[in-house]
Nucleic acid binder design. Structure first.
Length: 795
DNA sequence: GCAGCCTTGTTTTTT
DNA sequence: ACAAGGCTGC
């Protein structure tokens, strides 16, 4: 045992060691960027197990499935001395996966049927629209997406539809309450929960059901929660309910890296941890092992501008390293080309592999130009945009079939595919059946089964009935086993297994399987072995439903769709391999809860492109971040409705997270003009650039040769703020001007809807006189003087 | 019931 | 610029 303890504690610094060896009682680890946090967590889990704590009493919650998989693997490596089935007993999971598991296990207590499906964002929107129409809430007057935000934040606060309705409020709130109630009703009848419900219902279950709470408190006697700065209220309640008695909770995180306030994350959870757990030990990890001194200096200077934080001083023993490249490009094409050129140069001169490089951006819309540039230069790349595949029509269709099979109440899935491929059952027939179903309080599938009894269906009744026969025959063949629930003794294990991609890990997996089998952990009874796999189910459904191989001409798009369906089958086969005995339901849960980052491959041999949000927790020797402009980073939305300090600080943290991913080379860039929804717009340098010391940067101005009228964007090499926008034009047929139509550049004006603003640019395009105005309320607007009716304001 | 055209919004970020 | 959803005409 001692030898193992030595190995577990080897190479730890004093504070790291303190965090690892703290066993009983609350612990808060404030871990600066790159301070070895993951290392501390995995060592700590191993240390707990090595000190005689049963692995199945340990729960580690991470932010993504990818992080969970990596942590599980690293923990297994550290626990080699234990029989594998024991080491494997540690529950490592995301909040959402954990909640899905718990809600299935305690479905009855949570007021659910265990076969519930999980709605993704698209399903949510669809159901909400349907609910609003049913409840007489105008979809035009109340944008469903906005309503969804309101409902989501209510669930985060643990407010049920009824409670929300009771609170009352103005016109908007009353309609929101109606929408929430109707939406909730629709979800219940379809036996579907959304992402927020997973947390909401688990939190309420733990809060209100003492038996369940007690059982889970005993099961999870030691809890670790990573990325604690990004937990919302519901997650906070779940953590507290579990830790209430034993207080063995270890929260790790960094307030400076909190970037999810917009989806309900509450920074107070981590800032006030010691108030909730007065006996908490607090460990500060301030030494950075990741970045050069230069990168760290810039990052520290930037984040020092935030007021709402716990003061923390990052330092490093690493080298000073090269300066940060700051590129000013004239437009986004030039920006992308220059980034690619520099990545290529590093690849060639320093032999840095492509997969050691990443490009980050604030919004997904910026990927297209980057893709073009990478393709043109034949640089391999992967884009982390995982849900895109699953949001394709053909993929959603296949999944809708599977979801209906797993949960016959799922009316939304049924509606999606009842006429795909066409069976002559149009919206008229569906609404007839829906009315019938509502009246009899049965599911739509039931209505199909009884189609012969429904008035007005006419000869469509037979089509409906045979659809039900088709679904029932699948259910008969595939679902008998699905209804078999795992026994309570089986440890909960997150659905995603570590990737097997090298010999060593393969060996581990083999041992794991052998151990598991001999111990009866995985049921090897003949019935079980014969169980049909998810991939087989999928193939059967695709062929018997007629989804593929229809009469359609196989044009290029059709071929692509078929390829996507085949890819889906491959993914399912991979699932079957990784999860022996995994059910259809397990599969559906997993694909719904995948995050985009989960599908990132580390050894891809490709440059990785992702959003700043997705970059959290990662590191790369070379990082480029594009779009350092006002309106993009910080994002426009922060400035639109009365600039809130909190919002601005979150944008700054986002920039901080991006910068601190870089180990050695960091490239930042921005443009003077950028195409935005088809229009070329003048840009200003991000204020964040001015918050970092100028001596950290190498300034590269690619737009310098253009005739400048005034200091534009990133111009002057200096990092001044505030700056004037580009007051010159790139195109020869446009003429910039300082005076036009009685207005001057720089003068203060008033607009009847936008209010007060300052003219930043004047020009003539054809017959129109155009002014670019920066408004206090809405930011930059391009206005035609003839129509805008601007008034000059004196002073 | 369906295909094709035209309108509309879309650009935050994600489980 | 581009995609998706709605509407119109078969």
């Amino acid at each position: 045992m001692d030898a193992n303890l030595d190995a577990i504690l080897a190479g730890l610094t004093e504070p790291q060691r303190a965090a690892v060896t703290h066993i009983e009682g609350p612990l808060l680890v404030l871990a600066g960027a790159g301070s070895g946090k993951t290392r501390v967590i995995t060592r700590r889990v191993a240390y707990l197990a090595a000190n005689g704590i049963a692995p199945w009493n340990i729960l580690a919650v991470t932010f993504t499935n990818k992080a969970a998989g990596e942590m599980r693997q690293r923990t297994l490596d550290l626990l080699r001395h234990l029989p594998l089935r024991m080491a494997n007993g540690v529950t490592v999971s995301t909040f959402h996966s954990l909640c899905a598991r718990l809600l299935r296990e305690f479905a009855v207590a949570a007021g659910l049927s265990p076969t519930f499906n999980i709605a993704d964002t698209a399903d949510q929107l669809k159901m909400l629209k349907q609910a609003m129409e049913g409840a007489g809430v105008s979809v035009d007057h109340f944008p469903p997406a906005r309503m969804l935000e309101v409902i989501s934040s209510a669930k985060n606060r643990l407010q049920s539809a009824e409670q929300f309705a009771q609170i009352g409020g103005g016109f908007f709130e009353k309609n929101a309450a109606k929408a929430y109630l109707a939406y909730d009703q629709l979800m219940r009848t379809a036996n579907v929960v959304d992402f927020d419900d997973l947390l909401f219902k688990t939190a309420v279950l733990l809060r209100d059901n003492a038996d369940v709470r007690k059982e889970l408190q005993e099961r999870f006697g030691y809890i670790l929660i990573d990325e604690y700065q990004d937990t919302n209220h519901a997650q906070f309640v779940i953590a507290h309910m579990l830790a209430l008695n034993h207080q063995n909770i270890c929260a790790t995180g960094d307030p400076d890296q909190s970037i999810y306030a917009w989806r309900g994350a509450n920074l107070s959870n981590i800032l006030e941890f010691e108030q909730f757990f007065p006996k908490a030990k607090v460990v500060l990890l301030e030494q950075n092992y990741r970045s050069t001194k230069t990168i760290l200096k810039a990052a520290s200077a930037l984040i020092a501008n935030n007021r709402r934080r716990k003061a923390k001083t990052l330092w490093t023993d690493n080298q000073t390293g090269p300066g940060i490249d700051l590129i000013t490009a004239s437009d986004e094409r030039q920006e992308a080309a220059e980034i690619v050129r520099r990545l290529k140069a590093l690849h060639e001169s320093e032999q840095i592999g492509w997969d050691k490089m990443a490009v980050f951006y604030r919004v997904n819309a910026l990927t297209r130009v980057l893709e073009d540039a990478l393709m043109k230069s034949a640089v391999p790349y992967q884009i982390i945009r995982g849900t895109e595949f699953y949001s394709r029509k053909e993929v959603k269709d296949v999944l809708a079939y599977l979801r209906l099979i797993a949960n016959p109440e799922d009316n939304v899935s049924l509606e999606r595919i009842i006429n795909v491929p066409t069976r002559g059952i149009g919206s008229t027939s569906v609404s007839r059946m829906a009315a019938f179903a509502a009246e009899k309080k049965i599911s739509l599938l039931d209505a199909c089964r009884q189609a012969a009894n429904i008035d007005g269906l006419g000869k469509k009744a037979e089509a409906c009935r045979s659809f039900a026969v088709l679904v029932d025959s699948w259910r008969q063949r595939f679902v008998a086993d699905v209804s078999r629930k795992p026994s309570a003794e089986e440890p909960i294990d997150d659905a995603i297994e570590p990737e097997i991609d090298n010999g060593e890990q393969e060996f581990d997996a083999a041992v794991l399987e052998e151990e598991a089998f001999t111990d009866g952990l995985i049921d090897t009874s003949p019935q079980r072995k014969k169980q049909i796999t998810v991939a087989e189910i999928m193939e059967t459904v695709i062929s018997e439903s007629g989804l593929i191989g229809s009469t359609k001409q196989a044009d290029e798009e059709e071929l692509q769709r078929r390829a996507n369906v085949l890819e889906l089958i491959n993914v399912a086969a991979e699932f079957d391999k990784q999860n022996p005995g995994g059910t259809l339901q397990d599969y559906l849960t997993q694909v719904t809860l995948v995050s985009d980052i989960d599908q990132m491959r580390d050894e891809s041999g490709a440059v990785t492109l992702m959003t700043l949000h997705a970059a959290k927790g990662l590191e790369f020797p070379v990082v480029a971040i594009v779009g350092w402009e006002e309106g993009l980073l910080p994002h426009q939305r922060m400035m639109e409705q009365g600039l809130s300090d909190n919002d601005m600080e979150e944008e700054r943290r986002l920039a901080f997270v991006g910068i601190t991913r870089a180990m050695k080379h960091l490239i930042l860039s921005g443009t003077i003009y950028r195409m935005f929804m088809g229009r070329s717009e003048a840009r200003l340098a991000s204020r964040f650039l001015n918050e970092m010391p100028a001596d950290c940067f190498n300034l590269i101005d690619l737009a310098a040769q253009e005739p400048a009228a005034g200091s534009a964007g990133f111009r002057d090499g200096a990092l001044h703020y505030p700056r004037r926008p580009a007051a010159k034009t790139a195109k020869s047929d446009e003429t910039g001007a300082t005076k036009l139509g009685g207005f001057r550049r720089g003068s203060l004006v008033r607009h009847h809807t936008f209010g007060l603003g300052r003219i930043t640019e004047l020009r003539e395009i054809g017959d129109s006189q155009i002014a670019m105005v920066e408004f206090k309320s809405v930011g930059f607007k391009k206005l035609v003087l003839k129509f805008a009716k601007l008034e000059t304001v004196d002073g």
